[in-house]
């Protein structure tokens, strides 16, 4: 398994042109091995750029991306190997499906890795299970699947490469609550069962509160807050300051606190709120 770290990363778009934009500004962070880490921030906070740096799709203007302490750009010719170790699922990944069957599409990544037929079949089966896709669908064309199923197939395509670090950009965007839960649970299971690190980029604080161990909050190209879920939600007030939506239950806790009702800090689940209120009503 591998540890991922960023060291003083700066990324500038359109350098030396009138359109120059600093997307990331001296960002340093470490992603805990084996954790599910959430990255949250507004559109334009730099989180999408960050994601593309993690597996070497983009090269930082300055600073280093370290995988197990080694700069991933040490040998630029071997960047492809890094992409197999750090798997990236882009936003709306269903638009990348191209093979005739779902099975062939999920097998595409493992095939590019040069794995044996047998290993590929095994990986396809395993990945299908992770995302909860019905095996009957494997021999169907991507066009015959619903939006949610396509999304799951596309994510399975990256999981089948069994990356040590799985990065997903908005994996649940546009899905309904049921579809969202299936996908996020599958992603968490992948991390647990393979011991891989999972990084989820999302706009939804409620999803973060439910599925992530650690949270990194980005704002204006910098890390604004980071730490374990409890640590980050202990600063719930700071999150609303940069205009992020905190979970509804956290808003309620903040409101009650304002009215002088004693509640512990950092409530972000209904259960935690229930525990706190239960003792007040006794």
């Amino acid at each position: 398994m591998a540890e991922l770290a960023l060291e003083n990363i700066t990324y500038v778009y359109g350098e030396r042109t009138p359109f120059e934009i600093k997307a990331l500004d001296d960002v340093s962070l470490t992603v805990r091995e084996g954790s599910v880490t959430g990255i949250i921030g507004h559109t334009g906070s730099g989180k999408s750029t960050l994601v593309q740096l993690l597996n070497g799709l983009e090269r930082p203007t300055s600073g280093r991306v370290l995988l197990d302490g080694k700069d991933i750009w040490e040998k630029p010719k071997e960047i492809k190997k890094i992409r197999f170790r750090v798997g990236l699922v882009m936003q709306y990944p269903e638009y990348q499906l191209f093979e005739e069957t779902i099975r062939a599409d999920i097998a595409f990544g493992p095939k590019n890795m040069g794995l044996s037929e047998e290993e590929i079949n095994h990986r396809v089966k395993e990945a299908t299970e992770f995302v909860g896709l019905d095996p009957i669908l494997l021999d169907k064309s991507p066009f015959d699947l619903s939006g949610g199923q396509k999304r799951r197939a596309a994510i399975a395509g990256v999981m089948a490469m069994r990356p040590e670090i799985l990065v997903l950009d908005e994996p649940a965007a546009g899905l309904d609550p049921r579809g969202r839960d299936i996908i996020l649970k599958g992603i968490r299971d992948y991390g647990k069962k393979t011991g891989s690190t999972v990084i989820i980029v999302s706009h939804s604080m409620e999803d973060m509160a439910t599925y992530c161990d650690d949270i990194i909050v980005m704002s204006h190209g910098k890390v604004y807050l980071s730490g374990t879920r409890d640590e980050v939600f202990a600063h719930a007030g700071k999150l609303t300051e940069v205009g992020l939506d905190v979970p509804q239950i956290t808003r309620l806790a903040l409101l009650l606190e304002e009215r002088g009702i004693p509640l512990p800090h950092g409530i972000y689940t209904v259960d935690a709120a229930l525990d706190a209120l239960r003792s007040l009503f006794r």
């Binding site: 593309q52 597996n55 799709l57 492809k80 992409r83 197999f84 798997g87 990236l88 699922v89 882009m90 936003q91 990944p93 638009y95 990348q96 595409f108 990544g109 590019n112 890795m113 395509g157 990256v158 490469m161």
Partner: peptide, 16 residues
Amino acid sequence: EETSKIMNAQKARGVD
């Protein structure tokens, strides 16, 4: 824009 997104997605799956 879409082309570059799809290219990135496939690069991430090992296309060179």
